[in-house]
Design a protein around this nucleic acid. Sequence first.
RNA 1: GCCGCGGUAGCUCAGCCGGUCAGAGCAGGGGACUCAUAAUCCCUCGGUCGUGGGUUCGAGCCCCACCCGCGGCACCA
Length: 598
Amino acid sequence: MTHVLSAVAWPYANGPRHIGHVAGFGVPSDVYSRYMRMAGHDVLMVSGTDEHGTPILVQAEAEGITPRELVDKNNRIIVEDLVALGLSYDLFTRTTTRNHYAVAQELFATVHRNGYMVEQTTMGAISPSTGRTLPDRYIEGTCPICSYGSARGDQCDNCGNQLDPIDLIDPRSRINGETPQFVESQHFFLDLPALAEALGEWLHGRDAAGAWRPNVLKFSLNLLDDVRPRAMTRDIDWGIPVPLPGWEDQPNKRLYVWFDAVIGYLSASIEWARRSGDPEAWRQWWSTPSARSSYFMGKDNITFHSQIWPAELLGYNGRGARGGSAGEYGALELPTEVVSSEFLTMEGGKFSSSRGVVIYVRDFLSRYQPDALRYYIAVAGPENQDSDFTWDAFLRRTNDELVSTWGNLVNRTASMIAKNVGSIPSAGDLTDDDEALLAAVRGGFATVGSLIQGHRQKAAITEAMRLAGEANRYLAAQAPWQLKKTDPARMETVLHVAAQAVVDLNTLLSPFLPHSSSLVHRALGGEGEFQPMPVIAEVDDLDGGPAYPVITGDYSSAPAWEPRPIVPGTPVAAPSPIFTKLDESVVEEELARLRGDS
RNA sequence: GCCGCGGUAGCUCAGCCGGUCAGAGCAGGGGACUCAUAAUCCCUCGGUCGUGGGUUCGAGCCCCACCCGCGGCACCA
C-alpha cells in the first residue's frame, strides 16, 4: 500500500466551469483516485477553487459586486457541479481560507529567507484609477507593426507578432478604456535560474522513471532552456498579503495568483489533516519519499506544475544553487507525475463563454446523466490530443455503447434471472465456454487496472467495454432462453456465469461510472451504494474566517479491485433500465441551443 | 520565426521497443435470434497507413526533405 496524493487542478472562480474543464482535470483524476483506492492505496484527493487574480476583479466589477461576493457565488456553483459529477475529493476547499493564507505566506517567507525570492524594480502598466497592475492582455491599442487597431498588449491578433504593451500606439485599458500608466514598481521574483539545475535533475529523474506523457516531459524540459526570474507579486488589492516587513500592510501589493494557487495542494492537505483530527496526517503524503503524487490538469497549466510549483518547493526545501534550509513544514516532496490533458473542443471550435459556444456542467447535468458525460470524457476525451465534443457523437456513444452494450447486458441478464429463477442461480459443471468468459473478465482486473494506473483511461474503458461485448457474445452463443425448455439446469449455470461476469464488469467500470455502478449492483441483488460518493459539508473556517462549503467524503467503503463471487440464492427482481437512451432529436435541440435559437 | 503535436478504411480513432500491423467501433450491405431500452449475435463492403527520398533482409512504426491541420511561445488565468 502506498500513499497517493491526487492533486487536482483548481477551477478558477470567475464563473461556472464548462465540460471542457472537467474533461481536463475532473473525470481523469476521479477515475484514477477511485481506482487507486480500490487497489488498496491510501489516496488523498485535494483541490479547491482558485479565487485570486485580476480576472476575478474584472468579473466582479462587470457584475457590480465585490470580489468576495463573486467568489462566494462561484465557489458554491462549482462545488455543487463537481459533486453532481461524483468527483470523490477528500477535500475540495478554496484559496480564500485563512489556512491557505498562512500556508502560502509560510512558503513565501521561507523561499525568501533561503534567497530564492529576489526583489527587482520593473516597469509595468497600472490602471491610474485603481492603482492595480494591468496585465498585458488587458491592454489594447494600435499595433506598432501592422497598425491593427485592436492589438492586445501581449500579442497582435492581426499580424500575430508578440508585443510589449509599452510599444502600443494609443494604449487603453480593455477594462474601462482609460489610458494605462507605465510606472516603476518593486516586486519579488522567483529566482528560477538559481533553481534551474535542481529542476533539471528532478525532471531528468522523472524522465528516467518513464511514466510521464512524452509531450508533457518535452514541454517541461524545453522550459528549462530559457529560465528567467518570474514575478511572484502584483500591484493588486485582492490576494494574499506579502509576509515581509514593509510589505504586509501595503494594500496594493499581493502575492501573484499562481504563486498561491499551486500552494493549494499543500494547504488543502493540511486543512484536510486538521479537520481529520490528526493535524500531522498530511505528512504521510508530503514528507514521505515513498509516497506518490499525481497532478491532473489541462495543458495550459503544465508550466505551473512542472516548473513554478517544483521551483517553489525546491526553494522552500533549500535545494537550489543558494542552498538554504526547509521551513517549518520540513522538506516537501516534489510531484511524481504531472498528468496533463489536452483540450476539448466543442463542435469543432474552441469553447468560448463570450460567444456562447459552451456547455456548462450544470446545464449538461440538468438534461443528461452524469455517467453519460463521464463515459464520453473517458472514452473520447482529450487524453493525448485535442478531441472534439459533438452532440452527435455523444448521442451515439451513449446509445450504442453505454445503453446497448453495457446497460443492455445488465438488463437482459437480470431480467432472465428474475423471470426464470427469482434469485442468483447456482452453477453446475462449467464448460470451456463458461470458463473462458469468466477467465477473460477476471483478467480484466490486471489489464484495466494497469491501464488506469498508467493514465491510459481511453484504452482502459475500451478494454472493459470489449469484455462486456464478450459477455453479450457468450449469451448469444449459449442462448439460455432456449435452454429454458431443453435443459433448465444448464440455463441456470449459464445465467450464473453471466451474472458473475456482470458483477465483475461492474467493478471494472465503477471508477468510470460510479453512479450507475450502484444501480447495477442492486439490479443483481446487492444492497446499498457500490461506489461511495462525495458530499457537500458546510464548515467553519478553522481559523476564524467566514464559513464555506467543502466537498468531502468517506471513501473507506470503496470496493476492492478484485472479483466478487456472487452468492446463489440472493433475490433478484425484474430490473429497470440503468441508462437513459437518448432520442435522436436531442442533437438538433442542442445545436439549436448552441446557436442561441432557444 | 521557434518549439511541440497530428495527418492510418466514408466518420472517430488503436497500432508500445521495426518483422501475421494493415486493425477496432460507427456508418453501408446481407443474415440469425427473441432474454433484453428494436437492444443482441454472425457475415460482408471498404485503406498503395499525407508526399518524395533514405536506412534495413524487412518500415504507418527509424532518418532527411516537403505539404497540410492544430497548439504553445511566459508574467494570461
